[in-house]
Design a protein around this nucleic acid. Structure first.
Lengths: 207, 207
DNA sequence: TAGATTGTTAATCGATTAACAATC
DNA sequence: TAGATTGTTAATCGATTAACAATC
């Protein structure tokens, strides 16, 4: 089975293919994709073989076909609906982040407990947290972005999961407990910056 | 040398220690930290040994001492100044994200090319991109967050690096070329969601 | 055909885990 | 002392890379 690193690479290959498509390229070699994604050509072929993706010996891969296959693996063959919980700075930014629309991901609504944040006519609307379960259930939303304060994160995540959400992108700086069959990916800004600080210092001390 | 995963774990240990400190805990065992960080106790001790951090056989680690040592490794023993480039949705959210202040990270200014975004009196101020080099140079800022559109990312990253920035947290969905001795960490929202989609589907198909 | 590229196997590399002697 | 936990070494596990036969 593919691991996280492998799937992240698939996204990169997919993005590189989109650029090639726009340039009307028809074929591509593992070498080209390796350059674009910053990995080795062997890695590219190995990744593909894991998914049974084959090309043409001597002729590489057809851009269109390969693109379709990667899109399917990454769920880009259908509209993906997402809810965002927590209308603080990060949550609001994600609610209006344009980069997702053109990639088949639709944010259906934002949620908060603060009535001052509600905006039922908004695009997307901001609704009271009490409406979360009904919206997720009715529209069968599988994905949620969690951008609430740390102290509320575990509780809200349980609410999301109980409503039927299967995958959570968690911005709260805490390890969520999630049941079997549910997936949590964490984005921790403080931790990312600390990581950066460590490696910048390490690079300095090396000299 | 430590790798990214290891340093991310150090951040988690550090966060767990802060909570223990608040509860007036004096000692902690590798077992406790393992639970808090979601890893094995052997991993915790192995990580510490990589940094020459030692405890007391039988008595575990002193919370205060361990906390100090991890804080130093992660640069929390001094104020870290950061600039944010690009005042779109994500950039603005990060500029005002409160979670960083209390953790020794100070955003000194935001930058953009659009005069409508400028706010010289803001807290932090938003300045024209032309001022980036002088601000970074004068204050010796080592870290930058890049939140500009994809097409501008490579160029702006080069500007940052030329000014003296050594580490970049990159939100643009593109692989930046960075010279030796400089560090780039990527946060790609679309890619994270695609990752989530893949693993949610994989978990579904398993059954 | 000759030459180039894939697909896959084997080798290498690195990270995690297990185990246990050292010792507080 | 007896018992529990560390620190470290060796074993395991998994991912990446190299190599090359298959083949278009």
């Amino acid at each position: 089975m593919a691991n996280r690193s492998c799937v992240i690479r698939l996204s990169r290959y997919k993005n590189a293919l989109n650029r090639l498509k726009a340039l009307n390229f028809v074929r591509v070699f593992s070498d080209n994709l390796a350059d674009a994604a910053g990995v080795t050509a062997a890695q590219v072929r190995k990744d593909f073989s894991l998914f049974g993706i084959t090309g043409n010996r001597r002729g590489g891969y057809k851009v269109d076909e390969l693109s379709d296959q990667l899109n399917k693996i990454l769920g880009k063959d259908q509209l993906q609906e997402v809810v965002v919980i927590g209308m603080g700075n990060i949550g609001r930014a994600l609610l209006h982040y344009g980069g997702l629309e053109k990639s088949g991901i639709k944010i259906v609504a934002g949620f908060d407990i603060d009535p001052a944040k509600f905006d039922r006519e908004g695009q997307p609307p901001v609704l009271p947290l009490e409406d979360l379960v009904s919206v997720v259930t009715e529209r069968q939303v599988a994905l949620g972005v969690l951008a609430v304060p740390e102290y509320a994160a575990q509780q809200v995540s349980e609410l999301m999961l109980s409503a039927g959400v299967r995958g959570i992108l968690n911005f709260a700086p805490i390890c969520l407990k999630a049941p079997e069959g549910c997936v949590v990916n964490n984005i921790n800004l403080e931790s990312e910056l600390e990581n950066l600080i460590y490696f910048v210092n390490a690079a300095n001390n090396e000299k």
